[in-house]
Design a protein around this nucleic acid. Structure first.
Lengths: 240, 240
DNA sequence: GCTGCAAACTTGTACGTACAAGCTACATGA
DNA sequence: TCATGTAGCTTGTACGTACAAGTTTGCAGC
């Protein structure tokens, strides 16, 4: 938080308030002029914060009406788990460690192209299984370049939220991602981990996360059990 | 195009130029000041156009460097087909009509919740199969509320691009979407249409497209063969 | 030759103004 | 009572200024 900008501070405050139910789902946020007055910022700056909340799917803006709270889902709304129509909250989400973080070299034929900087840095690797209400839904293989992340393997405990840890410890925030998605079939390893039979359909996803650190990217290869929960995302909403 | 705004005009021009290879992949666009001067717009307005190109994944902006062309993928970069790392261009994409557009009532238990407005309007329904180089990759079931779309069933030919048709005929543009994704298994119908065996894994996707018309949404239920081509998307990139 | 610094670019942040356009609620008039 | 229109709210668009901060380039000095 050393050099957070004004609009980021407001963005973070509003996001926290939305997640903490200060504003109910479907209700309107204070108007841009009200926020501008109460936070002592110009309307332009307020609009910048709201715009980010909108592209991340937390609110919908409507001309003449206001900014309406749309979703409380976390992690950028890029692709998160949903039951019927309700996003799964953190309360029902558990994380199990399969392999603790370890420092190694990058795998050969890595699933994304790496820069020389990343190649040289070496790679931190760990594996987690995510469950919703005791049901395993995601087998996640994460790779991080070891770039200016002091004491990572000592500090990070797999049970805690990874993104939250990055934010609190290093001021790193995920701001976007590229991903590739396939329909695949569970092999023995995946079937065991996700409580499926060999041959059951699973989602295979390769992800490259973008962060607020200019050249730092995080990588994930994951398999999802979508028997009970679908993956969901929202995008766009830039135009009128 | 009756009332396109300045930034939308610039946005459309730049997007067209990117897709038409005026700017090569990896090269930098003219700077904000140059665009501002050449288009006779303020820098703020230019930034608004560039910002939209960025959130849709066409460019990446870098402080001190410029706006770098990142991708030529179409359809908002929300979720499009990719081979190894190259987006599939329109040249290799064919569309086959399975069911021509017909006006009917909405299916019972529709996969998204409908407003009263939509319920009352009735529904246009058609089915297409998309192929890349003769390989069927997508079975698409599209539903549209019949709201102020005169002569739709007469005018729309399934062979043409649906989004392009909407833009040219009604000035409707897709500006975002919500979607739910599952890994599933091909039944006989889907297997036949996609050239798969029964039991092969497929992606099942429900989509709700948002348009520039305030209360008009388009709906799609689709099945994808991801044997050769993955689905891909980019999101975010709002922050520094 | 080469190091290092400064100038000249780039985008990012923050402020401000003005008016357009959509929505709502209330008052006015038939 | 009820329709209508207007006042007052909302966000959207477009312009402008100023300075911060990252990147590149090239020149001066060693």
């Amino acid at each position: 938080m050393s050099s957070a900008t004004q609009y980021q501070i407001l963005y973070n405050r509003l996001k926290k308030e939305i997640l903490a139910d200060v504003y109910e789902l479907g209700s309107v946020l204070p108007s841009e002029n009200e926020l501008s007055a109460s936070a002592n910022l110009s309307r332009s700056t307020v609009r910048q914060a709201l715009s980010q909340l909108e592209t991340e799917g937390y609110i919908v803006k409507q001309k003449g009406k206001g900014s309406i709270v749309k979703s409380k889902s976390r992690a950028l709304n890029l692709l998160s788990f949903q039951g019927f129509s309700a996003t799964v909250g953190n309360d029902h989400l558990q994380t199990t460690a399969i392999q603790e973080p370890e420092l190694s070299t990058w795998p050969a034929d890595f699933f994304f192209e790496l820069s020389e900087l990343e190649q040289g840095a070496g790679c931190i690797h760990f594996i987690r299984v995510r469950s919703i209400d005791e049901q395993a839904v995601m087998y996640e293989n994460t790779y991080i370049p070891h770039l200016n992340l002091p004491k990572f393997t000592r500090l990070f405990k797999l049970k805690t939220s990874f993104f939250e840890f990055l934010g609190k410890t290093y001021d790193i925030e995920v701001v976007g991602m590229d991903q590739h998605i396939w329909a695949s079939i569970a092999d023995i390893e995946i079937a065991n981990q996700l409580g499926l039979k060999v041959g059951d359909p699973v989602l295979k996803i390769y992800r490259k996360y973008h962060t607020n650190r200019p050249h730092l990217f995080l990588y994930s290869m994951l398999f999802c059990n979508t028997e009970k929960y679908a993956m969901s995302n929202s995008s766009g909403g830039v135009n009128a």
